[in-house]
Simulated assay, not measured.
Amino acid sequence: MDRYTKGFVVAALVYFFLAALLGIWMGGTDAAGWVRFGHVHFNLLGFMTMMIYGVGYFILPRFNGRPLHWPSLVPIHFYIANIGLIGMVATAPERPSTGFILFSALSVVSAGMFAVNLGATMLIEPSSAEETSSSSSVASATEGKPIGASSSAPAGASEDKSEDKTEGAVPSATTPQAAQKVDPDMRVGEILTRWPQTVDVFVGHGFASLASPEHREQVKQIPITLRMACQRHNVDLDYMMSELNEAISPSFAAKATSAATEGGLAGKAKAKSPKGKLAKGETIGADHILGEILGAYPETEKVFRKYYGDGCFSCPGQATESVKQSAMMHNVSEKQLLTELNHAAGF
């Protein structure tokens, strides 16, 4: 969690404690009316609402596989929400008053900021790198120049071009295609759809379930980005991207090698081998991914259905969560789950 997302959760716990204190005061004495007001609003606008803000900012963008649409608004939202609530409780004895109305308005504005920001995150498609490259392609075409050409070309450019043609250089018409490459914020499903040849790269890095055509179709519907998938599988993102881009076009092989030499990528690749995938005949462990288990042992489906229900097979977590993570999230005994999974797999 970032600073302000965590701040919402911490604030929620503080307000919960304050509400509990006011509740004890109300129960033990004939407290004033503002005490009841503070108790109710510290619970509703403090504990419950602040917790929703913090958890919502953290989970919903990740679940949708998109960054928050306006992250710069989160700090502003944090201060407005807290100032509004504290001001409302402080001016409650004077209500209705100008101060109370202003602080109440701040609380309403803070709720609106949250709804608009998350609504935009879920409903508005983020602009992709493809749109940027395509717009630059159009701009270059209207100027009558190839993509990436400089207005201040060297004097001998025409001679160089003629020499390139005689030496069998790639024509400029192929330049837009060669410029396409994988972006870390692309969805895994989009990569698989545009470049089916990348399946072997994913499988080689531990995404064993993607070897199944049926599972690939499911993943294409899941809004999980390459960056998120690599984090969950403990795969080096830079190394993964270099291999994906190499699989897309041979021209990227030279670029990946050059980048490895300059930035030490080759050393990282050697030091960090791809995570092993679950193979048929191998026992199921706590760190194996649910989708990999289903791909290697389809008969384990009944065990997952027993503990997680039918929703497990359409859940985005299937492609990224391990047995350990899913057991913790569903409050299921990890040991019992592994025992039943291995029994179903024939061990």
Results as ranks from 00 to 15, higher is better:
Thr98Ala: 11
Ala157Glu: 10
Ile222Met: 15
Ser172Glu: 14
Ala153Asp: 10
Asn234Ile: 06
Phe202Tyr: 14
Ser172Gly: 11
Lys145Glu: 11
Glu125Ser: 08
Pro274Glu: 14
Ala173Gly: 03
Phe304Pro: 01
His288Pro: 05
Gly54Arg: 03
Arg187Thr: 09
Ala256Thr: 10
Gln197Ser: 11
His77Lys: 08
Ile52Met: 11
Asp164Glu: 15
Gly295Gln: 07
Ala269Leu: 08
His39Gln: 09
Ala105Tyr: 04
Cys315Ser: 04
Val188Cys: 03
Gly112Tyr: 14
Met113Lys: 02
Glu334Thr: 10
Gly148Thr: 06
Val14Ser: 08
Lys145Val: 13
Ile76His: 09
Arg3Tyr: 08
Val201Asn: 00
Lys268Gly: 02
Thr132Lys: 10
Gly346Arg: 02
Gln318Met: 15
Asp310Tyr: 01
Tyr307Cys: 00
Gln218Gly: 07
Leu68Arg: 00
Lys181Met: 12
Met51Cys: 05
Asp236Gln: 10
Ala19His: 06
Met122Gln: 04
Val138Tyr: 10
Phe202Ala: 01
Thr300Val: 03
Pro154Val: 09
Ala90Arg: 05
Val170Trp: 09
Val109Leu: 15
Ser110Ala: 15
Leu237Gln: 11
Lys280Tyr: 12
Ala345Gly: 03
Ser258Phe: 07
His288Gln: 15
Pro67Cys: 00
Arg187Phe: 06
Phe207Asp: 00
Arg95Met: 12
Thr142Ile: 14
Val199Ile: 12
Leu44Asp: 02
Pro96Arg: 13
Gly346Thr: 03
Asp287Gly: 06
Ser209Ala: 13
Glu214Asp: 04
Ala179Ile: 01
Gly7Thr: 03
Met1His: 13
Ile289Phe: 06
Lys161Met: 03
Asn234Val: 10
Val182Phe: 05
Arg194Val: 00
Glu217Pro: 00
Thr142Arg: 15
Ala208Val: 12
Lys277Asp: 01
Leu22Thr: 13
Glu217Leu: 09
Asn64Pro: 00
Glu340Met: 04
Gly189Asn: 09
Asn245Arg: 06
Ala12Pro: 06
Gly33Ala: 09
Lys268Arg: 15
Cys315Pro: 00
Thr193Tyr: 04
Ser212Ala: 03
Val108Leu: 13
Trp34Ala: 07
Phe63Met: 14
Gly23Ser: 08
Gly119Trp: 04
Val10Asp: 06
Ile284Lys: 02
Val74Asn: 01
Leu102Asn: 09
Gly112Gln: 07
Glu214Lys: 09
Glu246Ile: 03
Leu22Ser: 03
Glu190Met: 07
Trp195Tyr: 11
Lys324Phe: 08
Glu282Ile: 01
Thr198Leu: 02
Gly156Trp: 12
Thr300Arg: 01
Asp287Thr: 14
Arg305Asp: 05
Pro316Trp: 04
Trp25Gln: 15
Phe114Tyr: 15
Asp183His: 13
Leu123Phe: 09
Ser212Gly: 05
Val323Trp: 08
Val35Ser: 14
Ala11His: 03
Cys230Lys: 02
Glu340Ala: 02
Leu338Glu: 02
Ser258Met: 04
Tyr53His: 14
Asp30Gln: 13
Met241Glu: 14
Ser110Trp: 15
Gly281Gln: 09
Ser137Thr: 05
Phe202Val: 05
Ile80His: 04
